[in-house]
Amino acid sequence: MPCRSCEVTDLKTQERFTPLARFPLHVSRDVVQARQSVARELRDRGVSNIRVTRFSTAVSEIARNVIVHGGGGEFSVYLDPAAGYLMTVSSDKGRGIADIPQALTDGFTTAGGLGRGLGGAKRLADVFEIISSADGGTTIKMGIKL
């Protein structure tokens, strides 16, 4: 549900957007809810099947990482009307990603996973930005051109 008090701030431009949807990410059911909601928003805007599948797969990977590696967090979806993008922001207050290029490398995992989620999501999204630190946790912004 959109609400004034929970606007998202663009990491780079500091512009504020009212989210279309906002979800907690704590249990595996939350991952399904987040990616299905993104898929619905994209389909409503006439985005093609293949692009909906690609982007919601990226959302699923990033949302799962918030739970598995970041200790839980939250996820929001918003529109950047000026640029014509649907954007998502996931954030957690976990231990952060020490070496981002290494984490993006296919096959790198610190938790016995496949290690293809982060790098895969970057390839599947049109916009992909990571901000991460040991004390501030991890925020990942992704976007798809509408």
Partner: peptide, 10 residues
């Protein structure tokens, strides 16, 4: 299935 990600694939 609308998506199969790395977890479900594995």
């Amino acid at each position: 299935l609308e998506i199969v990600d790395t977890f479900v694939g594995r």
